[in-house]
């Protein structure tokens, strides 16, 4: 499309560029503003007097002596024990991704290689499950989990997140395995491998690109989840996102908002790094389902 067919007039080019610049500002400004503001005191972040205070840090200088302060961060991480929530998030996300991908590759491979009608029905049911609001499922878990005394523990929410993740993982890996030629594993089976051996020795070495892409989305689902972790984890097992929400419950005491701001910036950092390194995989993952229809 870069060729002469799409040459534009200067006026149109200027308009299009202006529009893109506007979009870039709309998309990035809130993040930059919050990042900058997280090093100020509340009086500057929400400035009653003058919004330029947030830029120069007028109140921050008065209250702390410097134009930047890390009070929000130390308050959130040490005083409010945000590090504990970070560790919980790490545990939940790590195991959710590993287990999801293990189940998903096996299931997705089977769905891609089975020609029977029930494979199609399973995919359809998975699509319906994918559309289910998570909170409706949570209201089904609570009473039984209370009764069996499994409420509040990390393993419980890990397995629940794995299950909620399965429909998407199955769809994604199913369409990925469809693109790996059948001949590959079938020739291995002609040579005397069982189906599982063929999967183990022939498919596993070539499946990593698809698994990495699917893993990224499993990571996002587990990391971004609020409905499940907020309802199923006890206070001391809370992960980052419910923890941030609970900062707000006790808010609008002076300074407390800044803890939440610092925690928000801290929780955004890993996502930022993720896009930095995996931009190509994220884009290809988003379009995989679309382009193939």
């Amino acid at each position: 499309m870069a060729s002469g067919a799409m040459k534009r007039s200067p006026a149109l080019a200027a308009f299009a560029t202006g529009f893109v610049i506007l979009w870039v500002i709309v998309a990035s400004f809130p993040f930059l503003w919050t990042l900058w503001g997280s090093f100020k005191v509340q009086g500057d972040f929400f400035s009653k007097a003058d919004w330029t205070n947030a830029i120069w840090g007028t109140r921050t200088i008065v209250e702390t002596g410097g134009a930047f302060t890390t009070n929000g961060y130390s308050g959130a991480w040490i005083e409010q024990e945000f590090w504990r929530a970070t560790m919980n998030t790490f545990i939940v996300v790590f195991f959710t991704v590993i287990i999801s991908l293990t189940f998903g590759t096996l299931g997705g491979y089977a769905l891609a290689r089975s020609g029977f009608r029930y494979a199609f029905w399973l995919l359809m049911i998975a699509l319906v499950f994918r559309a289910m609001p998570h909170i409706t499922l949570v209201s089904g878990y609570l009473l039984p989990f209370f009764e069996w005394n499994v409420w509040g523990h990390l393993p419980t929410s890990i397995i629940v997140l794995v299950a909620i993740n399965q429909p998407f993982t199955l769809w994604m890996l199913h369409s990925f395995f469809l693109n790996i030629p059948k001949d590959l594993d079938e020739s291995a089976m002609v040579d005397g491998c069982t189906r599982f051996q063929a999967f183990r020795h022939v498919i596993i070495p070539v499946m990593w690109p698809g698994v990495v892409t699917t893993g990224l989305f499993s990571f996002l689902l587990a990391y971004n989840d609020f409905a499940v972790t907020a309802m199923l984890l006890s206070q001391e097992n809370q992960t980052m996102i419910p923890k941030i929400a609970s900062f707000l419950g006790s808010t609008f005491e002076e300074g407390n908002v800044m803890f939440a701001v610092a925690a928000v910036v801290s929780a955004t950092a890993p996502l930022f790094v993720l896009i930095l390194f995996f931009q190509r995989q994220i884009v290809s993952g988003l379009t995989a389902g679309a382009v193939k229809g």
Binding site: T102, F103, G104, G107, L111, Q166, R195
Partner: peptide, 9 residues
């Protein structure tokens, strides 16, 4: 092959 995934769902 599909058992773990199906059981979870």
């Amino acid at each position: 092959f599909i058992l773990p995934s199906l059981a979870a769902m």
